[in-house]
Amino acid sequence: MATIATSLNIATQRVVFTSENRSVHLTGPVRLNNPWNLGSRTTSRMVKFSPVKAAPEGGISDVVEKSIKEAQETCAGDPESGECVAAWDEVEELSAAASHARDKKKADGSDPLEEYCKDNPETNECRTYDN
């Protein structure tokens, strides 16, 4: 086995398989040796792998809803326990992510040419002419 260290900048083509809501990860008995596919598994600074939770169909809104239910259940016993606090912190994180996703969607919904021209008004395709 030859090992060659390289200090080059190269463009690599990465093929990533994801479902629409990013919930499907490669699992099962066969682990393909293509580390660029593994995403967080190769690079996570966590010591152990976490089970990848499948996001429900409705996307992040459903996850937010579910996290609220979980937080309420967790806190039913002891509202000051670390578990309860961590559960509500997860609700906050997901709510913020849902809000950012809404903002992003709003921004993406606008016309791409107009978006481009906002930043590049001097280019030919963005010029407007009076008679």
Binding site: M1, A5, T6, N9, Q13, T18
Partner: peptide, 17 residues
Amino acid sequence: STIYSTQALNSTHFLTS
């Protein structure tokens, strides 16, 4: 989906045959 990205390869990456 196919993502093209430029990755800097250096001491912590190795090419192995």
